[in-house]
Design a protein around this nucleic acid. Structure first.
Lengths: 212, 212
DNA sequence: ATTTTCTTGTGCAAATTATCACACATCCAT
DNA sequence: ATGGATGTGTGATAATTTGCACAAGAAAAT
């Protein structure tokens, strides 16, 4: 195999994929600061990761840097976007319009980084039809049809823990391929459906262990 | 070393610590459902983790189960709380009272699981003194004194990315030992200070990689 | 031109993490 | 009592992940 080229058959460890958004975040900041070039060393210092790991991670996808010089920030940023497929807009379905769901719906960070909330669902008849920010809350009965007709592949769950599994089942049935779950409970989905969790309390509990 | 006893000198991998809150979450659910006993197999099925891994993780802290029977849920729950030091209340300082900070301040999940937001700070003079939920927003100038006088060890950052590092510096200076950072940026802190991140977009980007 | 400095990409080794598989303990049914 | 079923804790093994160290390319300095 020639140098500086990635093997398309290679299966890349998920732990590597998980670091790419972190690299992308750092690159965005650097370019925002007007910087044009960086190095694995600098990125490592910023992120608290070894430079060797950064180079090895990036090398899975090709040789993006130049010896003696480092990485062109804009170029690497673009390449990472291609790899992660975030060089486009994604539409998201949100389930749950309680306090948590409303907060998620109004969080600016999604739209700023290419994720557009396209529809919001809730089971509470009191809420159906009401405006939540820029969204009209739809009933759960419309979930499948809406998701399919809009071709949505990503959903977020912001319902109480006891309903999260049932909601996940409905989302999978509607063809959803990726779920971001804000409910503090693990959910089961078939192979091929990806799940990530947001549980701030779990993060806090992970840190209290060290507070002797 | 006798069986069923943990070695207090042993350094336990952080990745193991990171799974304990997940186990605890599952145990809480099981006991809420009225269950009294479970097994590493059942937990594994619920969580999508191998039973061997669960047994080995737990064995770092002692033998909590009984051969042939499994684990008493209430007992294991209590033991995990002891290990994680969450068998008590923790007070938290919150920095940032914008949209994100307000949402965090009003999130019920913290108090429900033993984390009590004790004070809220913001640099915007317009907001100082205003009521945000049950809190009166304090100026940044009072941060250090308030944190020290209340003996707070944990803080959450919910300010724009460009201010996150400066806020982190002030928190460290005030003696904070653990930070939950909602700003989408990596921050640098001295050894001995722990940081965890909440970045929903990073989670989404990790999943879009797989959406071919 | 030549040397020095810098930095990538990568083969190899080390460290970490996960899994296997089994001795031993317990319960239950008969 | 006894046999079968169940399930823990753990030593050994396998797999994964990280870090080291260096050849080679590129720029800057002399």
């Amino acid at each position: 195999m020639p140098p500086h080229s990635s093997n398309p058959d290679e299966i890349i460890p998920d732990i590597v994929i998980g670091r790419l958004p972190i690299y992308l975040r750092a690159l965005m900041r650097l370019s925002q600061e007007g910087r044009e070039v960086t190095s694995s060393h600098e990125l490592g210092r910023i992120l608290g990761i070894s430079s060797a790991q950064i180079r090895k991670d990036l090398s899975h996808f090709g040789g993006f840097g130049k010896q003696g010089t480092g990485y062109q920030i804009a170029y690497l940023e673009d390449k990472l976007r291609q790899v992660l497929q975030v060089n486009r807009e994604w539409e998201i379905a949100l389930v749950g319009a309680g306090d948590l769901g409303q907060a998620v719906a109004n969080y600016r960070g999604f739209a700023d980084r290419g994720f557009h909330i396209a529809c919001v669902f809730d089971s509470n008849p009191q809420k159906i039809g009401k405006q939540s920010g820029k969204f009209v809350i739809q009933p759960m009965s419309e979930l499948k049809e809406t998701i399919i007709s809009k071709g949505i592949q990503i959903a977020m769950i912001a319902v109480p823990a006891e309903y999260a599994q049932e909601v996940a089942n409905q989302l999978v049935d509607a063809g959803i391929r990726a779920i971001l779950n804000y409910a503090p409970i693990s959910i089961n989905v078939p192979d091929g459906v990806h799940v990530q969790y947001i549980d701030p309390v779990a993060h806090l509990q992970r840190m209290t262990y060290y507070l002797k």
